[in-house]
Design a protein around this nucleic acid. Sequence first.
DNA 1: CTCTTATATGAATTACATATCATATGAACC
DNA 2: GGTTCATATGATATGTAATTCATATAAGAG
Lengths: 107, 107
Amino acid sequence: MICNSYKSFFKILADDCKLNVINILSKGPLTVSELCKKLECEQSRISHCLQALKKFGFVASQVKGKHRVYSLEPKIMVPLLKLIDEHVEKYHRNLCKCNGVTWREMK
Amino acid sequence: MICNSYKSFFKILADDCKLNVINILSKGPLTVSELCKKLECEQSRISHCLQALKKFGFVASQVKGKHRVYSLEPKIMVPLLKLIDEHVEKYHRNLCKCNGVTWREMK
DNA sequence: CTCTTATATGAATTACATATCATATGAACC
DNA sequence: GGTTCATATGATATGTAATTCATATAAGAG
C-alpha cells in the first residue's frame, strides 16, 4: 500500500466544497461561473477546489471560449460513490453525527 | 448524496496513522500493543486511531483477556482499497508529491 | 485487595488544509 | 492595444483534527 497516495486520495475528497462540486457535476458538465451560481459560492473557492480535483484525476476540463467547462471523471467517481453509499447506509448514524460538529464534540 | 457522511468517510481515512493501522491489519488481526510495536508508535495515538476507525465501521474489536484484538472489516476495506489502487496507479505521480510535503509546497 | 500490564479517555498544543482577499492571467470584443 | 468578463493563483488568517502527555479504567496475577 502506498500510504501517502492513499492519504492524498482521501484528503482531497474530505471537503464539503469539493464534494458539492462532485455532486453537482455528476448531473452534467458546468463552467466555473455556473458552479459558483448553483452552489452560491465564491469563484476563487470553486477554482481552488477544481484545481485540486483536476490534479488528482477526479475531474477534467475543457476550454470553451472565455469559459472553462468541468466534468466528472466517471471511471473513478461512479464506482467510488456507489461503494461508499453502501457503507454510509449502514453506518449512517455515526457518520452523520459529524454534521457541522467538531470531532471532539460528537463523542 | 449525503454530503456530510461522505466527508466524514473520507476525513477518517485521510490520515497516515489510521492508514498504517489499516495496512498492517490487512495482514491479520493484532492487539493494540502489537500494533504499537510494529508501527513504532505511541499507544495512545494508536488507541485514538482505533476508536475512530471502529466508530465508523472500518475495524472490529474483540476482548481477549487483558488484550483487545482488532481486525479489519473486509466487506468495506477490500473493495475500497482495490478501487483506489487502480486510481492511484494512474495518478501516482500527482498523488505521491504529497509525501511529507504540505499542500501548498507541492504546487 | 494490591500490583502490574493493557488499553482507553481527556485536555492542551501543534500542525495543516481551507477560506478569504487581493491580484494575475487569459480570451474575446471593440 | 485597451477594456471587460471568466478563471486561476498567491499569501495570510482561520478553523479543525491529530498528536501528545497525563490520567483513568479494566483485567489478570499474586
